[in-house]
Amino acid sequence: MPASDARSLLASIHDVGPGAERQVDRLAGLLTDALDGARFAMLVVPDHWAGYPIRSGTAFANRLRTWSDSGIEMFVHGWYHKDMAEHRGLARLKARYMTASEGEFLGLSRDEAARRMEDGRALVEDIIGRKACGFIAPAWLYGSGAMAALRDSSFDLAEDHMKVWIPQTGEVLARGPVITWASRSTARTAASLAVAALARQALHPLRSVRVAVHPGDVTKASILSSIEETLKCFARRRQVGSYRSLLA
């Protein structure tokens, strides 16, 4: 079909870091098999929960470079991923109900958000030897400070749960909800499986469909089966694309 009419599938592995290397390996294998190649993105956390720092020259840093060299796109995904801010009002509700203390950039000031973004960008780019694809806040949650910092950043792309956009201009490049799964409880898992099944029927009209997986997904066979089915369902009908292709 003409490029202007092409429909794409964008897939990503979140929370990539040395503390989840085994889980990321398993997910990378699943995505590679389902998508017939390493055509997906990884969201890299420089120091997950201040306990798993990524350092240049380490074995894990070398793995990141190898993954990037294979064509996997690398996003900066916060710095700690953990939310350590005090929230009020709507932000407090988001922090409590939308994520388990994972929305690191929801309550940061502009200056602090900018510092963590820039430090993350510098670290990831030094390791992979090329420009990072963009920035995606942990749990897809951005406060006003983070949004202001993004507008002044050098990142080409940003993403939240409902869209992908160019930070400097606000131009939206893809719309529609990310298909993702929850493993924290039986009820959340059941709900995410039902939503994924519905998405496999309802989201075909979207120009771009996004699928995101997390290290915790490997703990439940039902989630892994749903991920595989979902990826294959959309890959049969559309091109497996890259985030950077949205800029074209």
Rank of each mutant, 00 (worst) to 15 (best):
L27M: 01
G129A: 04
L231Y: 07
A122I: 12
L64Y: 07
A6F: 04
H204N: 07
A100I: 02
A191C: 07
A191W: 11
P177N: 11
Q201P: 00
W67D: 10
H77G: 08
T58W: 10
T230M: 08
K163L: 08
A158E: 04
H14M: 06
R96L: 15
T99Q: 09
G143V: 01
V124H: 02
R200E: 05
R116C: 01
A190D: 15
T180I: 00
C233L: 03
K82R: 15
Y243K: 00
A95R: 09
P215M: 02
Q239H: 12
P2A: 11
L193S: 03
G120S: 08
S12L: 12
R22Y: 02
A113V: 12
D111S: 14
T99N: 14
L173R: 13
V124R: 04
G17Y: 01
A248C: 05
I166A: 09
R88F: 12
P46D: 09
I13W: 04
C133E: 10
L9Y: 01
F105C: 08
D160Q: 08
D217N: 14
G143Y: 02
V211D: 06
R96H: 10
C133W: 03
I223F: 08
L224R: 07
A85D: 15
V211L: 14
E125R: 02
A248Q: 11
E102G: 09
R55T: 14
A85K: 11
R238M: 15
V213L: 05
R151W: 02
L203W: 10
L123I: 12
L150S: 04
E228L: 03
S70Y: 00
A148T: 10
P18G: 09
L150N: 07
S109T: 07
R115L: 15
A114F: 03
A20D: 00
A3S: 15
G103K: 02
